[in-house]
Nucleic acid binder design. Structure first.
Length: 447
RNA sequence: GACCCCUUCGUCUAGUGGUUAGGACACCGGCCUUUCACGCCGGCAGCACGGGUUCGAGUCCCGUAGGGGUCGCCA
């Protein structure tokens, strides 16, 4: 029987990083096993389940690249979904639940109680076979001891989570339930429900939770809890996927930087960790850097152009060679996509925006004659490539009996406005002789 | 209160009775670099605690402590 897994989020208005990781593990397992990844929207609840809230989830999954084989096409529950096991919105599956509830009622496995319907739960310990945690024997808590039966249909007629979750997994032919460990205790209820319906249990795999860096529970308000943090934070989806995969799963050797294709190839349930993991932004940042530098040149350029455009920097006026040469200087230096505009924006601005501190340090009265001399030397150059620029600067410094550094920083600030940036000689080569001289002149004006 | 899961450097992890307990991120040095990075070299740092079992325990058992989860007519 082929693998069928599902991600079943409740549309709460944001995609939690833990939910994203659960979706990722399901997706990786499906892709690894050549199975089907189902997306099911658990919108049985109340008014908070809006189309917008569903779209937030779908957008987050799409951004990560987690495509689903069956499920909604959009956040609109009324729109037809893809897949033949639908509907994939629980709000549209009322008749299915009614049938299943009646089945339980007919078999006297459930009964009415004060307008609600309750399920006859066993009082015996329930064994939960779990691929990650092993066989978990769940005893009744003292409160459950007092009344083991639980509500499956509210008095207002709406079926509750435990019931619909199990019914859907049965109807949709789910073979592996991969979900957060926060569901482990409640799985005893699900196990009994599956038995009541007379079907075989799916394989359960409860994965550890993601905690804050200090070990506390990660809730909506905590930094990094929402996927939007990464979607807007200059991260590559591949980096986030890679990092998330390593939280609670290990390939068992020391491999860490892995493209999605390799994760699919290597991911499997036996490698899933038992203990909760803490979120470490620094490590994500490092992986982001690794994935950015691993980008194909064309992909990097596409990313960079998008960033520059978003920052309001117009690159259309420049020719492609110039733009590509400027972007090429960022290779291996950019750690976050959001840094690109600040790093090389100067290439595309007519007037350099001077960083106040940098200008104060570099544009001193003592430096003025040195920079003026370099300006003349550069204006006379017949070859304007990086090597010539370096030789010329060294010669100028020697002639004026100052260290190279005395010329380097004013030149850098004059060209870029900043103390940090790409290699000075290379960036001047790209800027071109006329532009460099022009920028030196503008700097000299302020000194 | 009850029930369930978990516990190796600060963090993510390797480790399935015999290892100088390995790697990565972070951090701290040095080299390279006439910017910032990258890179290279080196360093700091861990088996929660207490009992067992065993010739031998990070690995097995029990207990304690700590962390997380669940016990709802929320999902």
């Amino acid at each position: 029987m082929s693998v069928r897994v599902r991600f079943a989020p409740s549309p709460t208005g944001y995609l939690h990083i833990g939910g994203a990781r659960t979706a990722l593990f399901n997706w990786l397992y499906a892709r690894h096993a050549g199975g089907i990844f189902v997306l099911r929207v658990e919108d049985t609840d109340d008014a908070r389940n809006t189309r917008e809230a569903v779209d937030v989830i779908l957008d987050g999954l799409r951004w990560l690249g987690l495509d689903w084989d069956e499920g909604p096409v959009s956040g609109d529950a009324m729109q037809e979904s893809k897949g033949d096991r639908g509907p994939y919105f629980q709000s549209q599956r009322g008749d299915i639940y009614q049938r299943r509830i009646q089945e339980l009622l007919d078999n006297e496995l459930a009964y009415e109680h004060e307008g609600a319907i309750k399920f006859r739960m066993t009082r015996e310990p329930v064994t939960i076979p779990d691929l990650v945690a092993g066989d978990v024997v769940r005893k009744l808590t003292d409160r459950e001891e007092a009344d083991p039966d639980f509500v499956i249909v509210r008095s207002d007629g709406k079926p509750v989570f435990h019931l619909v979750n199990v019914v859907d997994d049965i109807e949709m032919g789910i073979t592996h339930v991969i979900r957060g460990e926060d569901h482990l205790s409640n799985t005893s209820k699900h196990v009994e429900l599956f038995k009541a319906f007379g079907v075989e249990l799916p394989k359960f795999a409860h994965i550890p939770l993601i905690l804050n860096n200090d070990g506390s529970k990660m809730s909506k308000r905590d930094t990094g809890a929402s996927m939007t943090t990464y979607m807007e934070g200059g991260y590559l989806p591949a980096a986030v996927v890679n990092y998330l995969s390593l939280l609670g799963w290990s390939p068992k050797d020391d491999t860490e930087v892995m493209p999605v294709a390799e994760l699919i190839k290597r991911f499997d349930l036996p490698g899933v960790q038992r203990a909760n993991a803490r979120f470490d932004m620094a490590k994500l940042d490092w992986l982001n850097f690794e994935h950015i530098r691993a980008l194909e040149p064309d992909d990097f350029i596409a990313q960079a152009l998008g960033q520059l455009q978003a920052a309001g920097i117009d690159t259309a006026a420049r020719d492609a060679d110039y733009t590509n040469a400027a972007l090429a200087l960022c290779t291996d230096k950019i750690k976050n996509l959001n840094d690109i505009a600040g790093y090389i924006g100067f290439f595309f601005r007519d007037a350099v925006e001077f960083n106040a501190e940098a200008a104060e340090q570099a544009f001193t009265p003592e430096n003025r004659p040195h920079l003026a001399a370099l300006r003349e030397a550069y204006a006379d150059l017949t070859q304007f490539d990086a090597d010539s620029l370096m030789e010329s600067l060294k010669a100028t410094a020697a002639a004026r009996e100052v260290k190279n550094k005395v010329l380097v920083m004013p030149a850098r600030v004059a060209c870029t406005g900043s103390k940090v940036g790409p290699s000075l000689y290379h960036l001047m080569e790209v800027l071109g002789q006329a532009e460099v001289v022009k920028r030196f002149d503008a700097a000299l004006e302020t000194m």
